[in-house]
Design a protein around this nucleic acid. Structure first.
Length: 265
DNA sequence: CCCGTGCCCTGGCGGC
DNA sequence: TGCCGCCAGGGCACGG
């Protein structure tokens, strides 16, 4: 499931494939994904650039910004125009190629904004800064007034942007903090450690994804692979640091993996 | 404002 | 072999 590193890698792919191309036509195969008024506005627009903010992709067009969220399984790929795959929902006919948005679960979203409104209304108006830019005092102030588990806080895009369920577990493991630790009991030092671990893990994941970018296809995963993970999906396996069995619990309905010895309340 | 729950979706898998 | 129920999860609406 795409988190900040995967979205960043996708944006690199899109810059390579779609930057400078004009949208000549669009075929929408699942109407809830994109309505007709959006489709009409997009036709004739040139893709001048692709930016990212957290898990969002932002296509910078001639007159609008197109905000794309991949959610769990959304992906973009370029392929033979004659081949339509089962979960291709939006097909962009560009100047000299066909770009497809494929999404098995249909959870992905498209939002079109006037350029002046992009960051003024949802979804981007509510988005916090990414770990790379976030200010420690701001982050710590947000934490101090929350009574939820820290895991829940890391998934809150309005507090810190770009972290999803997989990297949240990995970040807390590296920071040696228990996922159920209540946010407002953290010290400023621990908040700082969380930010540092976030930057470290996201950066390493981006580098990892970057190695597969040139062979990117719809059915290839980007980002971290299972052997890079320390705790996520490792239930009952020995912790790579202390050999304690990795535990699995639910935090706010999300599967959460942790080491009860390395990560303290 | 904060916090928890249910919903959107499909495919894969365990159980029988 | 097939069917059923559950699980995966990001963001949002909605209730307390």
């Amino acid at each position: 499931m795409p988190e900040l590193p995967e979205v960043f890698v996708v944006s690199k792919f899109l810059k390579k494939e779609a930057k400078g191309q004009t949208i000549e036509d669009i075929v929408v195969r699942y109407s809830k994904m994109m309505d007709e008024s959006m489709r009409k506005k997009l036709i004739g627009q040139t893709i001048n650039d692709i930016e990212t903010h957290g898990k969002y992709l932002i296509f910078k067009l001639t007159d609008y910004d197109l905000i794309s969220h991949l959610r769990m399984e959304g992906k973009y790929y370029v392929s033979d125009p004659d081949v339509i795959n089962k979960h291709d929902h939006v097909i962009f006919y560009l100047t000299d190629k066909v770009l497809k948005y494929n999404d098995v679960r249909k959870f992905g979203t498209f939002d079109l904004r006037e350029k002046s409104q992009t960051y003024k209304i949802p979804p981007l108006s509510k988005l916090a800064k990414e770990p790379f830019e976030i200010d420690l005092d701001t982050f710590y102030a947000a934490i101090k007034k929350r009574r939820s588990p820290i895991k829940t806080i890391l998934l809150n895009q309005g507090i810190i942007a770009g972290i999803g369920n997989i990297y949240a577990d990995e970040i807390l493991f590296q920071a040696k903090i228990h996922p159920l630790k209540i946010a407002n009991t953290l010290t400023k030092k621990q908040a700082q450690t969380i930010i540092a671990s976030s930057i470290d893990i996201l950066t390493r994941a981006i580098k990892k994804g970057g190695t597969t970018i040139f062979s990117f296809k719809s059915d290839e995963e980007v980002g971290w692979f299972t052997q890079d993970l320390m705790v996520h999906t490792k239930a009952n396996e020995p912790c790579k640091i202390c050999q304690t069995k990795i535990g699995k619990i639910k935090v706010n309905g999300r599967s959460t993996y942790f080491c009860s010895h390395c990560q303290r309340m």
